[in-house]
């Protein structure tokens, strides 16, 4: 049995050896983590593991003992949403929205890791989240607005 923190809740996973974090999360109803491909390139399956973005479908559960996992479900409580989510809505950075949770997690990880990230840092973290709708124009604007406001505080 493996124990880890999932969105702040101690979670026990008793699963088969080949189970990925993706399988586990979808089964448990964390639907913000999505299928895009089997090899992680699309990043629709992005989660945070100890604050770092990773592809849930490339992580076997047994490697997660004691880790801290976050999905976008933990970023909002009712109408109370994360300012980055708000920036995405405000800037029109969401079209179909399938990649949005992955983008939000990627940008949030950057915000936590770096004090004054540049636009090229933003594009770098979004390279692992494929989006076929937006051309990344508005997501980059939303991210930049969020990061600038955050740093100004």
């Amino acid at each position: 049995m493996i124990q880890f923190q999932l969105n702040g809740t101690l979670t026990e996973a008793q699963v088969r050896s080949g189970t990925t974090l993706f399988d586990f999360l979808r089964e448990k109803g964390f639907f913000s983590v999505k299928y895009g491909s089997d090899k992680g390139e699309t990043g629709a399956d992005t989660v945070l593991v100890d604050g770092k973005i990773m592809n849930a479908s490339l992580i076997l559960i047994h490697t997660l003992e004691g880790k801290y996992i976050e999905t976008v479900e933990s970023f909002s409580h009712g109408q109370d949403i994360h300012p980055l989510q708000d920036a995405f809505i405000e800037e029109g950075a969401i079209q179909c929205g399938y990649c949005t949770p992955g983008m939000v997690l990627a940008i949030e990880s950057l915000a936590r890791e770096k004090e004054n990230p540049t636009e090229s840092d933003v594009k770098d973290v979004l390279a692992g989240v494929y989006c076929r709708c937006t051309g990344y124009v508005k997501p980059v604007i939303a991210a930049t607005n969020y990061l600038t406001t955050k740093n100004a505080k």
Binding site: Q79, I81, G97, P101
Partner: peptide, 24 residues
């Protein structure tokens, strides 16, 4: 005029809104 998407909030929150997002 600039208008926030009617489905923006649910999508940003990663709610169970896509075809596969239901218990099986």
């Amino acid at each position: 005029q600039k208008t926030r998407r009617v489905d923006g909030l649910s999508l940003a929150k990663g709610k169970a809104v896509f075809a596969d997002d239901m218990p099986k």
